[in-house]
């Protein structure tokens, strides 16, 4: 990963032009939706939509490649671990990896299986992560840090927290470059950083952390002094450039997002009342059906 992987897309696009407040609001709404919704079909549709938004934002191919690798690994890990270690009931074994009758591993583990319910649960969890990461990166790649900061402040995020979050974006690439240099230093000194084993990865991590942390402490000291002597203080009442008002489509988009959230939450609550036998109305049957299949 290099410096420009966290940089803002250079190509102009409608997503890039969108006000930071709308993007942040959208991200917040989706974060609520992915928690509420359990349907793999709907979450899968959200994932496709998120990827289409990247296409609309003209995200560079190399960034998408990195995102794809990251998401593939995360999705595979989540699905596999949930499918194997699912502890809920009922659970249906659809594939046997180690039969329980196998001598030592079978007796020790009681057998290792892939469970259908775990597999589906893993897909749901993986898709939630996928949607949030894809949209999160979309916001990072299409919003200038200053716009993001201004947007956060307008959305009443405390200044100190917003400032720290935005600043961390600036320093993550530097951190990654330093990790890369330390890995080169290890190669220079004949140490194989990437080697299988139980202790070796821990040792590698410790060796990376030594110089990395020492540099970080030094750097953060400089940064703290630099911002402090420019009057930064969490308690100071800071003047930020007034953001321009939202235009009509942006206002409409924000309202639609709020409307969707309110509708989905309401539908889910009504369905749960029915599901737990607390409230039922026959006129709401289409809603129950929709919520069951898609929410």
């Amino acid at each position: 990963m290099n410096k420009s992987l966290l940089g803002v897309n250079t190509a102009p696009s409608p997503v890039k032009r969108l006000d930071a407040r709308v993007k942040l609001l959208g991200l917040f709404c989706v974060s609520i939706l992915v928690v509420i919704i359990d349907s793999p079909v709907t979450l899968g549709s959200f994932s496709v939509l998120a990827l289409l938004l990247h296409a609309a934002a003209r995200t560079e191919t190399r960034k998408l490649k990195v995102l794809f690798i990251l998401l593939s690994v995360a999705l595979w890990g989540t699905v596999f671990s949930q499918a194997v270690f699912y502890a809920g009931t009922p659970r249906t074994a659809i594939l046997t990896i180690i039969p329980s009758a196998t001598d030592v591993p079978g007796r020790l583990t009681g057998g290792v299986f892939i469970f259908k319910e775990g597999f589906i649960y893993g897909i749901v969890q993986g898709l939630r992560f996928l949607v949030m990461t894809t949209l999160g990166m979309l916001v990072v790649w299409t919003t200038e840090p200053r716009d993001m900061l201004a947007g956060m402040l307008r959305l009443r995020v405390p200044y100190a927290q917003a400032f720290m979050l935005i600043t961390s974006f600036r320093f993550i690439p530097i951190l990654l470059e330093e990790v890369n240099s330390i890995l080169i230093a290890m190669r220079i000194k004949g140490f194989r950083a990437l080697k299988y084993g139980i202790i070796h990865p821990v040792r590698t991590a410790v060796y990376i952390m030594n110089p990395l942390l020492a540099n970080l402490v030094r750097k953060s000291g400089f940064l703290a002094l630099s911002v402090e002597c420019r009057g930064f203080s969490p308690s100071v009442s800071r003047v930020v450039q007034k953001p321009k008002s939202l235009n009509m489509p942006e206002t409409a988009a924000a309202l639609i997002m709020v409307l969707i959230i309110v509708s989905v939450v309401s539908a889910k609550v009504i369905y749960l009342l029915y599901f737990h036998g607390l409230y039922y109305s026959s006129s709401l049957r289409p809603l129950y059906s929709f919520a069951k299949n898609y929410l």
Partner: peptide, 20 residues
Amino acid sequence: EQIFTSIVRDEVAFGPENRG
């Protein structure tokens, strides 16, 4: 280690904005 914004104007504006 001292610059933390992406645009020159924002970097220079940081101090005056902090002063309100």
